[in-house]
Design a binder for these strands. Structure first.
Lengths: 186, 186
DNA sequence: GCTGGCCGTTCCATAAACAGAACACTTTTG
DNA sequence: CAAAAGTGTTCTGTTTATGGAACGGCCAGC
């Protein structure tokens, strides 16, 4: 049965809702005040921030002005954001979803000097490719890491435990390919 | 004269309309095909591209996936400029300028079916790397192109004439490394 | 204690965005 | 040359996002 099992809420609606509410609070504006400045109904804004509504482009545009952000600041998804843990900084450049449900993610990876990060296994069939652009580093399946200098690349299965690291620091392009077509329940 | 000079149309609606149409053409998708992949009505998409509709957030999100761009790529101003000549669509994901003046550019390349593009030599020392993610294509120094399928990669010097092409269409990640060496004043 | 102002939420009628069908038109195929 | 398959646009009824009104909760000032 197609039970609607909403995961952790990845919907763009919830993300935008959170972002608007956060920006409004940061500006010290009340819901009523922001609605007035944006020229939209306060009920609209209320339900929008609670994630129960699916705003139109023009509603978002009306809000972007008074909030002092470009439209991309409201809808900005994870692309362009960095995830950093002090050792590895992964800057997501692109996400592609393919017909079969597989995805291709492209990251700019910055490895801090002297650090190593252990990454858990991803889903079966995942493949990772890392091309070093600057510095020297090492990456690959744990126990089978390969040293890499500028211009060198290495590929490995992402569905086992793997590591990234560098002694002197390194930067490069990381491509993660996740397969689609998980045998659905049918 | 009370001519209501129709403004250059700065409305977000028209801008998004143009962007979606441009991306769709660059991918070689028909309106019908894109609507199907996005899971939206074709009438919806038609009127959306003509600028007569005010799309909701979720409609935009549905389109972003099949078009292979983040949401910001649809509503953003220049977020990731695309250069297309009908055969090759190069979507710039990232540019890095290094200390020595060298640069690394990361593109998402979409090769239209049945086309080949000849690219002139870049500056000496430039190196290009192309990794195919979907479809099949060929790339490399002219006369020494290499056939590539999903997951395969090829590197070649960018300072000679080289080509990109595909019979059935292909997509992948292209990395162009330009050396520093700029006779900087210092 | 009341009273008035502002807060955010919930409800309502209207306008419009939606999916899909019907359409005219062009290109391909036999 | 006719049939078939493709293109994008226009029309339909249904769904839903919208602005505004009504509502209860909270705090200040008389």
């Amino acid at each position: 049965m197609p039970e609607d099992n909403p995961p952790p809420d990845v919907s763009p609606r919830a993300a935008v809702a959170r972002r608007i509410a956060a920006l409004r609070h940061a500006r010290g504006l009340s819901l009523t005040a922001l609605a007035a400045r944006a020229g939209i109904g306060k009920g609209t804004l209320s339900e929008l921030e609670s994630g129960t509504r699916n705003p139109t482009l023009e509603t978002l545009y009306a809000l972007a002005g008074p909030l002092g952000v470009p439209l991309t600041g409201l809808v900005g998804d994870e692309a362009g954001r960095s995830v950093s843990d002090g050792v590895v900084d992964a800057h997501l450049l692109s996400v592609r979803t393919h017909d079969d449900g597989g995805t291709t993610e492209v990251f700019w990876l910055t490895l801090a000097p002297g650090g190593t990060r252990i990454s858990p296994a991803h889903r079966p069939g995942t493949v990772e490719h890392f091309r070093v652009v600057r510095g020297r580093g090492h990456a690959g399946e744990r126990g089978a890491e390969q040293g890499l200098g500028p211009g060198e690349a290495h590929s490995w299965p992402g569905d086992t435990v793997h590591t990234y690291g560098s002694e002197e620091g390194a930067e490069g392009v990381l491509v993660i390919e996740t397969p689609g077509d998980v045998p659905g329940p049918s």
